[in-house]
């Protein structure tokens, strides 16, 4: 008994010191993390809480008082034909931009990758749209596509197709904006795919060539495409999120028109929030928008990180 008492007393001192050291380390660690946490709290978490709170009220900008309406704003959104149309338009926009920007990005990357001396030149050319300000470029596109003054229509008249009202024809407005969206994203996706392509060892192509992958299609299907899997998944997710956030081109070129044909989710939020001052309703729409973004992010975390690694 005495022996155990002594041994525990002996052990007591270093034990206490170890505890104190662990506490100090913990405090220091928290001290380092604090500024980042504060920033996160101020610019992301607090606005999100405020947003969520607002979405449950009937607050309008400038109103002196407001009351809670529960999920009323969300119910209203679901039955609002304008919102439903903008949601549908957004999905349509994403479904054009996603295959276009990913497919073209991959194609351009494969072509540029096989260039040797001119590679950096092409990389720069295709990357230029990414570096430009989309609002300014949207204005340029507006001029290019102008029915009377634009060079594109001048060319179409020349070859006998005649004038096409790209932005004022309801059936063409959204696809036209989608094409501009593709134009803007291809360069970025190309760079991502190029990075993926550079990571594929040259040996594999040579081994495949000896093993009988004689043409480009075989080599692409046997080596390039499977090994680009992780890159492709990443590009798909980032492209989806970017496409889902479409706003600038719509705001500058069509203002959601003609007749709401190009009205998209973020533009509807902008109209409700900053034109009609329905702040609470806009907050609810923003929550819905965030849910979609969250879905894409979740897919990224769970699907990509698990499946496409070897």
């Amino acid at each position: 008994m005495a022996a155990t008492a002594i041994s525990s007393a002996e052990a007591g001192l270093p034990q206490g010191r170890a505890n104190r050291q662990a506490l100090v380390e913990k405090l220091v660690g928290m001290g380092f993390a604090f500024p980042a946490f504060l920033l996160l709290l101020v610019i992301i978490i607090t606005p999100l809480i405020v947003l969520f709170y607002l979405s449950l009220t009937d607050y309008e900008l400038g109103a002196l008082d407001f009351r809670s309406v529960g999920l009323g704003n969300f119910q209203k959104a679901m039955s609002d034909p304008v919102f439903r149309r903008s949601l549908w338009n957004t999905v349509l926009y994403v479904s054009i931009v996603l295959p276009g920007a990913v497919g073209l990005g991959l194609l351009v990357a494969v072509l540029v990758h096989s260039r040797k001396r001119t590679r950096s030149f092409y990389e720069m050319i295709y990357f230029l749209p990414v570096t430009s300000t989309l609002i300014a470029m949207a204005t340029v596109w507006q001029v290019l596509l102008h029915p009377r003054l634009g060079p594109i229509n001048a060319f179409l008249r020349q070859i006998g197709i005649g004038e096409v009202a790209f932005l004022s024809d309801p059936s063409l407005a959204l696809p036209t904006i989608a094409v501009i969206g593709i134009w803007q994203l291809v360069g970025f996706n190309m760079v991502l795919f190029l990075a993926g392509l550079s990571a594929i060892p040259k040996d594999l192509y040579e081994a495949a060539e000896i093993d009988g992958c004689a043409n480009g299609i075989d080599r692409f299907l046997t080596i390039t495409w499977p090994l680009l899997g992780p890159t492709t998944m990443f590009v798909i997710i980032t492209t989806s999120i970017t496409a889902f956030k479409v706003f600038d081109t719509v705001a500058v070129m069509t203002r959601g028109g003609p007749a709401g044909a190009s009205e998209v989710l973020l533009y509807a939020v902008y109209l409700e929030g900053f034109q009609y001052f329905h702040t609470a309703y806009a907050a609810a729409l923003t929550i819905i928008f965030l849910v979609f973004i969250l879905i894409f992010s979740v897919i990224q975390t769970f699907v990509i990180d698990r499946r496409v690694h070897y």
């Binding site: 060892p201 040996d203 594999l204 040579e206 081994a207 495949a208 000896i210 046997t222 080596i223 499977p226 090994l227 899997g229 070897y310």
Partner: peptide
Amino acid sequence: VAMVFQSYALYPHM
């Protein structure tokens, strides 16, 4: 001809 590479060049996804 068949070739064995220094890096083996096995297809990692297969």
